[in-house]
Design a protein around this nucleic acid. Structure first.
Lengths: 139, 139
DNA sequence: ACAATATACTTGCACACTCAAGCATTGATC
DNA sequence: GATCAATGCTTGAGTGTGCAAGTATATTGT
């Protein structure tokens, strides 16, 4: 108990840091009417070829379960940030595609998020930011 | 869109990484009948002087709201991992104290969590783990 | 061809968490 | 010393998410 395992300390600190970070990001994004999770969805879609992905792909890309994705997408479809498409080869998969409106919201939100992210890592020098990104990629 | 802001990329990657990490940690801890949040509570209490903290202190230490703490502690009090104590100087605060049973569960769970944490950071060399911990502390 | 298994979701239920409102107590100001 | 704001906490209502079970389609083995 006196000498704490550094790995455990790292894990606990990170969990706290990350939870606070997401809360702040959510706050920034609330101006655009979307949550950090929704931003993640839009982000992944905008990076995807033809800006569309299956729900399962989205789930793993943003770290949610399949059911989480289903429910998260419902309101986004309703306000037409995304739309459903069928997959010709497999009738089970229902593709999610970014609409022009969704694209626009994403670009707006991205600015806020860019700003936030830049601010968030600003205690580190550019060199350190690079190192951090590199180390995290290996986990 | 072509060249993504590295800071934004870092933030999004981290969110995914930590969310997956917490899920795995939760799985490891389920053997002991506690969640990662509950482990965090026990951990903070075991580090605290006299192993007791106010609910507000706990909240900020583990990254939850005051109401989150209230509800999280209810079952823990019921199975006597922690107990209530009054603060002599301020009747508003209700201190939370680790019981011997709670201490024992914590020590057991800590072993699992140590193991998990060590495994989690094992893709990095000890030197890199140190660097990572150091960089995260500055955020 | 047909059964058995796997995959891509969706839905019902449960749980964890937050926010806003409320209560009790304390501290500050006049 | 009375009032008014601030603090610590609890509770009611709502949101986000997961798990297990269900449905539809696909794939595999015989």
């Amino acid at each position: 108990m006196d000498t704490l395992n550094p790995a455990l300390d790292l894990v606990l600190r990170s969990a706290l840091l990350w939870s606070n970070m997401v809360k702040k990001a959510d706050q920034q994004l609330s101006v655009h009417g979307i949550s950090f999770s929704e931003f993640g969805i839009l982000h992944q879609l905008s990076l995807a070829p033809q800006q569309r992905l299956s729900r399962i792909e989205l789930a793993t890309a943003v770290g949610l379960s399949a059911s989480g994705i289903t429910r998260l997408l419902q309101p986004m479809e309703k306000i037409q940030l995304v739309e459903k498409e069928q997959n010709a080869r497999d009738a089970r998969v229902s593709l999610v595609k970014l609409t022009p409106a969704g694209q626009q919201i994403y670009l707006d939100a991205q600015q806020s998020c860019d700003f936030f992210a830049t601010q968030f890592v600003s205690p580190l020098t550019p060199r350190q930011q690079e190192t951090l990104a590199d180390l995290l990629k290996r986990l």
